[in-house]
Amino acid sequence: MLIKVLGSGCKKCITLTENTHTALSQLQREAEVVKVTDFAEIAAYGVMSTPALVIDERVVSMGKVLSADEVAALIQAA
């Protein structure tokens, strides 16, 4: 599983990345978590509000700092 956190590097994106790591360890699952800060790459996903969460190249959330529980739910649904 490949998880990407899209965002220009502001505090919200850092929090979302942390929560994603927490969610993964809660679920005891392994996944590669990548932070995408390049605007061109973010734009390629068509995302208008950051931070956004992309699981296996599918945008599952945008403009929200999801809690670890919310991220866990999205990982399980993916």
Binding site: S8, G9, F39, I42, A43, M48
Partner: peptide, 17 residues
């Protein structure tokens, strides 16, 4: 709109795109 200036660029791209 949101206060954070870091959100203005994705907005710009979204609007123009």
């Amino acid at each position: 709109t949101p206060f954070c200036s870091c959100s203005s660029i994705p907005l710009f791209i979204g609007f123009t795109g």
